[in-house]
Simulated scan of single mutants.
Amino acid sequence: MDEITVLRGLLYLLLNQHPSLVSHVQKKHDHAGKALVEDADAWTALCEIFKNILRDPNLNNIYLIIDALNECETDLPKLLDFIVQQSPTSSRVKWIVSSRNWPDIEEKLEMAGCKVRLCLELNPESVSTAVGSFIQYKVSQLVERKKYNDKTRDTVLDYLSFHADGTFLWIALVCQNLENISGRKAVAKLSTFSPDSILSTSG
């Protein structure tokens, strides 16, 4: 994952929920063409689009959520600088970011204006409770969609609970993979979803 992928993802979700904002992309695309997505200046172009969207008077209250900032392996400082610079531009826009407790990320985000910090790594009981609830929710979705029987449901629950290690991203990725596997084969496939292998594949 890199900084351009993160920004593109946010833009896609914004435009999907607010189609009227697509004019900002069209205007830039008419000027930049393929460079908007392929050129070395893609980051600059995407930043300009994003800034214009955030300043759009027709934009309602929105929440921009970036999970696992530490998974951004390329040009993370650029992404952090962008978040810090844009966070105070509009009271209608709220940024919610999560990350491992890395000093360089903390230092950058400390430069943001109005912020609330919640350090889950210092609250293991809260993390454990939240992870457990998330697992229950994701497995209930699988039960409904893939028609798991009780034995399969319990096996998936136990596997996720034992291996999650407080990592929401891993849980989400495993469940995403299980969506593409029949209920009868789910248990047999579980052992292939180790935390190290699936997180490295997603990156």
Rank of each mutant, 00 (worst) to 15 (best):
A164G: 11
G33E: 07
V93N: 09
L80T: 07
K51H: 02
A42W: 01
F162Y: 10
Q17M: 12
L76Y: 01
K34S: 14
S87G: 03
I96D: 05
R145E: 15
K151D: 01
K185I: 14
S197F: 10
S90N: 09
L7H: 04
R145H: 14
E144Y: 02
D196L: 00
L36K: 05
N61T: 03
L173K: 04
S140H: 08
K151P: 00
E144A: 10
L21E: 11
V156K: 03
N123C: 12
I198W: 05
V84E: 08
Q26N: 15
Y63N: 15
D2Y: 07
A68C: 04
S99Q: 04
C114Q: 12
I49P: 00
P103M: 02
E106A: 13
N58V: 09
N149V: 01
N123K: 15
G166N: 05
F82Q: 04
K151N: 00
G183Y: 00
L122N: 10
Q17G: 11
T155C: 11
A45Q: 15
V187D: 06
N101F: 11
R184K: 12
L79R: 06
L7K: 03
L80D: 06
P124C: 02
Q136C: 10
Q176N: 15
R153S: 13
F162N: 12
L59P: 03
D81P: 04
E179N: 14
S182T: 03
T89Q: 05
V131P: 08
W43N: 03
T5L: 14
E38F: 01
L7C: 09
A186W: 04
F193M: 07
Q17S: 14
G203D: 00
L80G: 08
N149A: 02
G166Q: 05
C47H: 01
L36H: 02
L14E: 07
L190M: 06
C47P: 00
Q26V: 09
R100H: 09
N52I: 00
L11K: 11
R55L: 08
Y159W: 10
T89M: 02
E3Y: 07
T74L: 11
V116T: 14
A164H: 10
E121Y: 14
V127Y: 01
Q85R: 05
V25H: 06
N58Y: 09
W43T: 04
I62Y: 05
V6R: 11
P19W: 06
H18W: 03
F168C: 03
R55K: 11
P103E: 06
V25K: 06
D165C: 13
L36F: 06
V187M: 01
L142W: 09
D196Y: 01
G113W: 11
N180P: 01
E144H: 08
G9K: 03
N61F: 08
V97T: 00
Y159P: 04
M111A: 08
R153H: 14
D39R: 04
R184C: 10
T155A: 15
Q17D: 14
D67C: 07
D67I: 03
V93C: 12
A188Q: 14
T5D: 15
E106V: 12
D81Q: 10
H163R: 13
S200Q: 02
S140A: 13
R55Q: 12
D41G: 07
L190Y: 05
D2R: 09
H163G: 08
D104S: 13
T89G: 02
N149H: 05
F134W: 09
I135A: 06
F168P: 05
L173F: 02
E71I: 09
S87A: 09
C119Q: 12
C119E: 13
S126P: 01
L157R: 10
